[in-house]
Design a protein around this nucleic acid. Sequence first.
DNA 1: TATGAATGAGTATTCATTCAT
DNA 2: GATGAATGAATACTCATTCAT
Lengths: 173, 173, 173, 173
Amino acid sequence: MTDKKESILSAALELFAHEGYNATSTSQIAKKAAVSEGLIFRHFKNKKGLLAALMEDAEARISKIFAPVIFESSPKNVIRKVILLPFSIDQSEYDFWRLQFILKWQQEYNNPLKMKPLIDKLAWAFSELGYEEPEEEARLLNQLIDAISTGILREGLESQLPFKAFLLKKYSV
Amino acid sequence: MTDKKESILSAALELFAHEGYNATSTSQIAKKAAVSEGLIFRHFKNKKGLLAALMEDAEARISKIFAPVIFESSPKNVIRKVILLPFSIDQSEYDFWRLQFILKWQQEYNNPLKMKPLIDKLAWAFSELGYEEPEEEARLLNQLIDAISTGILREGLESQLPFKAFLLKKYSV
Amino acid sequence: MTDKKESILSAALELFAHEGYNATSTSQIAKKAAVSEGLIFRHFKNKKGLLAALMEDAEARISKIFAPVIFESSPKNVIRKVILLPFSIDQSEYDFWRLQFILKWQQEYNNPLKMKPLIDKLAWAFSELGYEEPEEEARLLNQLIDAISTGILREGLESQLPFKAFLLKKYSV
Amino acid sequence: MTDKKESILSAALELFAHEGYNATSTSQIAKKAAVSEGLIFRHFKNKKGLLAALMEDAEARISKIFAPVIFESSPKNVIRKVILLPFSIDQSEYDFWRLQFILKWQQEYNNPLKMKPLIDKLAWAFSELGYEEPEEEARLLNQLIDAISTGILREGLESQLPFKAFLLKKYSV
DNA sequence: TATGAATGAGTATTCATTCAT
DNA sequence: GATGAATGAATACTCATTCAT
């Protein structure tokens, strides 16, 4: 990948994440990336294509971040790792995740199935630990870390920090 | 308020809630409201003014929905009522709430303080019930109902229904 | 003439004179006149009609200001009075005259014939005084007082004051 | 400068000069220049920018037309050249000068200082020739050529032609 | 690969004007 | 006489996209 192509991608990510997809014009992206507007279309065909390119990363990143949970064999550690998930996001990745969360509100990009493997693993863990309704517990915890991630991205890491110890204790993990 | 003014408001609400503020053009709104585009600007000065008019309702509606919790004197009932909150939203109000949740991602409209009174009341309730960390419990439950509301708005009421009984039982309320 | 009709006229005069006819919107006029926009059209049919109403005054005012020159019998006094003309305009009439001068640049309102009687009288005066080319002298002086009036309206009375004594002396009147 | 950019400039000049700045729409300009409306904004940012580009020429053209007067060493020739100035304007430049004169009525573009060097030179010439009030004579003649220029632009060259010989004779130059 | 000129459809907004009350 | 709601056409300007170089 050329330098210019990459700078388009990172400019677009930053702008999409903070202004929104529709509110960001291709000319803004070109300016921020310091390339000609035409080049965006040479590389990505159109604006949607640019977003799509950005989203392709998503799958890979999500797998990478979920893997340690999926392959964990201790139920307690599964829950523990899930709770720690939102707190382990590197600040350099905030824009990426912001964009993910914003797009969830747009039908065409909202795919709840992405979380399926994680929820299944959690359900297994709760079941192992003897919880009465492991399915619900799993989905609830998943929903909760979604909410905490949202909190981190919107109000900063510190605002959500108290939950870390609290949840670990609450679930005794 | 004239008929036409109201139909502009409701058309705008529906479109903003589903397409997003930026992705909705004033001409779409006019068409859906079956009025001339110019009328939007006579009534609301500009597109932002239209959004602002929509948001003015917000404060009122939020107060109205929170009141029964705030004025509840039984701690258990406070928690119970908070859990039931997301499930009591009338479907006719979904668009309104969708818009609220979408706008949270836009700095200028993200005001976490709106929830303060509710969280305080919850903290009081948890404290009364002898929870060890009532502050954290309160913020956690608040985060949880935020997550569930999100779930309802994005995936439908049914998808979140299991949580209702589950949470009431979990908190024994 | 009703109060409101008059306040429309004076608001329009002020705005047309300072912003120009095209740059002034009927809503600005209505606001400045503190009447509803509709009333403008009730009274003047349309925006052009409002300008026309303003211009109707013109003929009368011009006759009134020219009369003392036209009916003067002493050649010297004719020239003297013409020279004094631009300096005798009351400040309260500046807007009116500004508008006249601006409109001269718009074909449809530029009517050089308005000045005919004055130029004829001047030519007669110069001829009486034995000037060699009275016609040219007359038109030149007319052009000159036009330029001085322009100067007064654009740069203020003081800026043109030196010309008063100077011209009276130059023409020995 | 591209062809299209130039045709925008010349279309704008013609329209601004004859209809006025406010009365000319960008779509008219685009149509007359046979380009897309958007191109106007790519090249000149906005309508004001287009006018500004047109005005940038002004300074250069004015210097160029004044230079032969400023660098003239014979007092008589200075006066002679000034008198001939308005008659030497090429018809192809009428639009340009019309615009200059129209804009004088708009505060932001009215800059009387542009004429300072010319008036100073005239004052020097009149002083050399022993006129009693060279300052006033200079400003008067300047006003006169302003008036004659106005006459040419509004009523055509022929209407002002008699003044040429007349003034040359009057000032004996 | 990269640019920059160019476009056509669209955007928010303003305008002069009409009309029912 | 006077208002204020309403309109349709126009306005300045932006946008995503194309294309010749």
